[in-house]
Design a protein around this nucleic acid. Structure first.
Lengths: 237, 237
DNA sequence: CCGGACTGGATCGTATACGATCATCGTATA
DNA sequence: TATACGATGATCGTATACGATCCAGTCCGG
């Protein structure tokens, strides 16, 4: 059992420490969706799979718990988070807040090459929307992340930037397993991207950019809510 | 040298687990200022002081690291964070963002009794400001926290609320050791509190409350920057 | 037939021991 | 004297072992 002859487990890249290894491996498994939401994580089992001991695995799991990617219950075990729909809403709302700020703070540092890159990505998204045959929700989501990454990665405040990353990770984990894409939003989303780029390009005031970025995500949240009709009273930010 | 002669280690309250005990103890020590910024934390030493082993201490330290209260370096040891002034600015800015949102989201749930409590606290702050003899920076800071707690504790989004708490903790730890209060701000601060209460009481729109709360903290940050003149180009949110 | 206590298994929480890594300090040499 | 180098100590990182706790299934009594 201890022999690392496991085919599926992608040979864990050499990490600085074993707890880091466990963290990165689990993180990748969860974000990529290989570990579905609700899946149980037994410390000893994970340790055996990675060929290490339980102590570093435990530490990795606690870190993931702090990021909201797993829930850890005493004497019961850890489970991959992402079951609760309300958590999805909270995450979206929080991301709306921090991503809006990050995008606004990044704007002054966004250069021509960044804008060009973002435009190129958005063009591919538009192509997808225009041609129904080519539309691929997974790829569309990936492009969406790439687009926004360009716009918020220059954020001078590392704390806010970190919160944005955590939000995206959590969202990716949650969405991949439980929630469905709302394709009706795709066209609007691409249009809002272009509007956002125009604002940044012309050096619009920071609050204006923040509001645009925030509402861009809020609109996605609203679309999700409308498609489910489940939580009509969710507070708007 | 082994006994740090710390002022009466308060008998660690019984906690659910020992790692939780270590976490709470260290957290309290740092936030209260008993452990000054830059102080070294040796795992074995802390473990001995609490009468437990190093493993749970290690876990507690990693959690504190995730919250930004300590920095952990391999084979060197952990140190209480809070030396870097720029970190203080980042924290203030982030707190401005999340606290503004939390206050705005809480507003609909703030009732008469909450408003009365907040007014009572603010009255005490005003009394302090009016009478120079009674002014006590530490107590003023505590009252300030109490005031804002009333206004953001009803936040329906637990993620945002958690970020607010973390921000305050981090700020408290940083401020207690390295940064000085700006007493010139006290009077304005109290006035802004009253304005904030009026907005909430009359049911002002959410964005308006958010902006007021955010700028209230931004003003404190600006005052700090002005008093030091060190970082004139810090971006405004 | 049903409900409560009991036992067995599984899992986590912690202690202890050992190895790995890094910083520090002393020494020799150019 | 300044610098390079090696020995020493301190600290963390991990493995292993054991105890504590909880859950589930079972058995017994009503």
């Amino acid at each position: 059992m201890s022999a690392p002859t496991r085919a599926a487990a992608p040979a864990p890249a050499p990490a600085s420490s074993k707890s880091q290894l466990a963290y990165e491996w689990l993180h990748a498994q969860i974000v990529s969706g290989s570990l579905a939401a609700g899946a149980r994580l037994v410390l000893a089992q994970v340790a055996g799979e990675l060929g290490i001991s339980v102590v570093p695995v435990r530490e990795a799991v606690r870190r993931l718990e702090a990021e909201g990617l797993v829930t850890f219950e005493k004497n019961v075990g850890a489970t991959v988070a992402g079951i609760d729909p309300i958590e999805y809403l909270y995450t979206m709302q929080t991301l709306s807040l921090v991503e809006g700020a990050a995008t606004a703070l990044s704007a002054p540092a966004v250069g021509r090459s960044d804008l060009a890159a973002a435009r190129e990505v958005n063009a591919r998204m538009r192509a997808m929307v225009d041609d129904d045959h080519q539309f691929d929700p997974v790829e569309f989501t990936r492009l969406n992340h790439e687009f926004h990454s360009v716009l918020f990665e220059h954020c001078p405040n590392p704390h806010i930037l970190d919160l944005v990353h955590r939000g995206w990770n959590r969202l990716t984990a949650l969405r991949g397993s439980t929630f469905s894409f709302v394709p009706e939003r795709a066209s609007e989303s691409v249009a809002e991207h272009e509007e956002l780029l125009r604002l940044i390009e012309r050096g619009a005031p920071t609050p204006e950019i923040e509001l645009a970025a925030r509402r861009h995500r809020s609109a996605t949240l609203d679309a999700y809510l409308a498609s489910t009709g489940a939580h009509p009273h969710f507070p708007t930010l």
